[in-house]
Design a protein around this nucleic acid. Structure first.
Lengths: 248, 248
DNA sequence: CAAACATTAAATGTCAGACAAATGAAAATT
DNA sequence: AATTTTCATTTGTCTGACATTTAATGTTTG
């Protein structure tokens, strides 16, 4: 584990990279303790604050955890699915908002990926998944539900669908696509009619998964994709019109 | 933007969270300059090293960039697709290796997602994508190619397939699934016969996309999935046998 | 002897102040 | 007018110190 003193990059960035590489390559294994900050400072020939900045970078990526006190220190952390998913969601959300990704692109990506899960979910969904989906459908039908809550429930429904595939890697990957859509979905105003259509399609999807009918699930998902796209287009058009109005 | 002095969490973590939230909520926009480190230290009532640790956390997530000198400082950074994808790949790879994800699970996830891209790719692939795929197929057929290079080319082929869908969000999401599989694929020893089968399937996929025949592409991908799975199982069985041997 | 308590050492968390290095802008010079 | 010099600002790094947490050790006591 060495750094290049001639490099123009920050020392803390170099040190972080050196340790990160050691973790990725397997030189440092899960729950192994890193040398203390003073020892690392000696090893890399830098001061302790510089080492600390490097460790904070790694902590931000959930690669290490630190513990105070005697026999404390920095330990290589086992990355959990939940943590990885939450990181992934944050990054995806920021990526979409900062690059002004249009509704169509995000929507297409999300539903394409979800349709990939449907056949597996039809095969493996448990009663638990079905119950979650039906509970969310019920919630979506409640009168007086705000648009935001409706979207939240929509996300929960689709996550249950994805989780039904019983593949944690798939769930992790999909979490980013599904959750990152939420800010975009929140721009839509859902009329009662809109909701009825969506709830109807959700019900068809749940029934199809219940009957382990993969083809029916796919058809319903395709229809939901098309419908969501038209809703999104309408919302974007309405926004554009409102903007033109305010600028006049 | 405030922090809770009573919280047990590190001050630098709290400050990083406060700034991160401001970025996510849109209070801080792309290319906006943050206050200088001394000013932030005053605002949050902490010392400059503490502020610096917080900023390094954000830098590790590519949320800010820093510039030295007069009129320098920390600026909110636009997250690019490439950066987000590379972060996603690192996280996915670590997640798989640290949690000892089995070949079957990862493989299933990867191909399920890829098959979701195939219809879109059949519709939109450009001559460029087809050329890349054919070039990689040609590379895969070269004699004396190491297993590692073969896998590398395989990844390049599949990324071209995904990119053919012309949906950057999809490409970003898939990058994690495809690249993270590489370490697992590297455990496989590809015989000439194995390679021939894979190259044949790759050719069928390229031809199908060329002909914009989505169904044919899906069939070939399904066969490739099944074949890769058997190869993986054999490799894992061989590994287990070798281990049993060495323990005897 | 065992359990409760006090002590201690090691480690991270935080702070204060200083200097180095980079950099853009203003001032001085040619 | 163009070039060079100076200068103020800001991040990068270092030194040294103190606070806080925590486990291990030692001590006392029932």
């Amino acid at each position: 584990m060495k750094i290049d003193p001639k490099s123009s990059a920050d020392l803390s960035a170099q040190i972080a990279k050196a340790i990160r590489d050691a973790i990725i390559s397997g030189d440092l294994i899960v729950d192994e303790r890193l040398p203390s900050e003073s020892e690392l400072a000696d090893q890399f020939q830098v001061s302790r604050p510089t080492v600390r900045e490097a460790l904070k970078r790694l902590a931000a990526q959930n690669l290490i955890r630190t513990q105070r006190g005697a026999s404390g220190g920095a330990f290589v952390r086992r990355l959990s699915y939940d943590e990885a998913a939450s990181q992934h969601i944050t990054t995806s959300t920021l990526l979409l908002s900062m690059n002004a990704v249009d509704f169509e692109t995000a929507c297409e990506a999300r539903f394409a990926l979800e349709r990939a899960c449907a056949p597996l979910s039809a095969k493996r969904r448990t009663p638990d998944h079905l119950a979650t989906m039906r509970a969310e459908i019920h919630r979506q039908a409640q009168p007086g539900l705000s648009d935001e809550r409706f979207c939240e429930s929509d996300v929960a429904f689709h996550r249950a669908l994805v989780d039904g595939a019983a593949n944690p890697v798939l769930s992790y990957q999909l979490a980013g696509a599904v959750e990152a859509m939420q800010p975009l979905m929140n721009m839509i105003t859902f009329t009662q009619r809109n909701r009825d259509v969506i709830i109807g399609l959700h019900t068809r999807i749940a029934n199809a998964l219940d009957a382990q009918d993969s083809a029916a699930a796919d058809t319903a998902l395709a229809e939901l994709t098309a419908y969501t796209l038209t809703l999104g287009e309408e919302a974007m058009a309405a926004r554009a019109a409102a903007k033109a109005q305010s600028e006049r």
